[in-house]
Design a protein around this nucleic acid. Structure first.
Lengths: 198, 198
DNA sequence: GTCTATAGCGGGATAGAC
DNA sequence: GTCTATCCCGCTATAGAC
């Protein structure tokens, strides 16, 4: 650690993640269009030009954040969609969705609010991943209907309604607030279960 | 109409609303920070400087759009909260919320996505109005609990969960799509009713 | 890999003519 | 009330030194 005090040098191992972290936090707070590369650089502790060692441009930085979030979400949701009857799988999905989203408020915020700021090509990619996630829940609802334990007017609309309800928890949850994760899960699971039960 | 072809003149009667309409549409599409005063002026058909006859600055333009939307929402919701038992009032609220939001996709989008871009003072005003709207629904849920027809773990969390679910309809609804307003209302009312019924 | 410096552009807002 | 013109500033991205 002889170089701890240096102002210049090679830091590729750590600067890359720090750029992503700073961009995520600032974009979640102020919005993509309102955050400048200079602000991100200042947060990391480098000059603006140095960022371009880690991203070809600002748009790619946003896309990487959103794609990374959706990849994690899809991979985790598929692991969580365990065997069992439809009611058990719906409980598992509800629990998973809340457990995944609550610790990631910035990622959730950016992934839902910055869709407008993606290029057309990048938007298509993220939109496809979002639909794939909806399919995870819709499969459960369809299977539950086939089993006769669920009843609803339209599975696709219900899928979107439930995901909107569950994701909304990120709008008000605060880690130091009145409710812990388990309590919140119980409250939402009660609503979800009753809303689709036959 | 002797002046239809003129390029300059007095148009205060019509330009003001046109500025607001153009700003709303552009901000809904691209985001407040990404839209320039020059773009808004071009949409209206005037030069950028002329906009400042109608707003002291860009921030006030955003605030007026959001405050106007929330004022309409609150006034209309209070008219719609008719008498009757809690179940009837919940049905009325659900129908009202969907009927109010579906024809106003741009207002809804801006009012939920641009909170970050309000100044602190303006944010506090809009946030207070948002809470007042939540209170309309929460009163219904509390009354229903007292009547014994509703049961839920927490009325405030349930209020937010239901509003998030209902507002989410604006994320996918298209006027030329598969569902008409009545069908959508039926689907969502089924979910809402079942989710809170004792 | 980071720095300094800058090119090239577009932003919000204002001044003064008409 | 709208126009033209402009001030002053900050933006993304790049070039070249170290």
């Amino acid at each position: 650690m002889a170089d701890m005090a240096r102002k210049q040098g090679s830091h590729s191992d750590i600067t890359g993640p720090r750029v992503r972290d700073a961009a995520l936090r600032l974009i979640a707070r102020h919005g993509y269009a309102a955050v400048s590369m200079r602000q991100i650089a200042a947060e990391v502790g480098v000059q603006a030009g140095a960022l371009y060692n880690y991203t070809p441009d600002k748009q790619s930085l946003l896309f990487d954040l959103m794609q990374g979030h959706m990849q994690e979400l899809l991979a985790a949701s598929r692991s969580a969609d365990l065997a069992g009857d439809a009611l058990a799988r719906l409980a598992g999905f509800t629990r998973f969705h809340i457990a995944f989203h609550l610790p990631r408020p910035d990622q959730v915020f950016v992934s839902y609010m910055e869709l407008r700021n993606l290029s057309d090509a990048n938007f298509a990619v993220i939109e496809g991943m979002r639909r794939a996630y909806e399919d995870v829940l819709e499969d459960i609802l369809r299977d539950g209907e086939a089993e006769g334990v669920f009843a609803m007017a339209d599975t696709r609309v219900t899928t979107r309604a439930l995901i909107a309800m569950l994701t909304g928890v990120s709008n008000w949850y605060r880690p130091d607030g009145q409710f812990d994760t388990e309590t919140i899960t119980t409250i939402y699971w009660d609503l979800v279960r009753k809303s689709v039960t036959a």
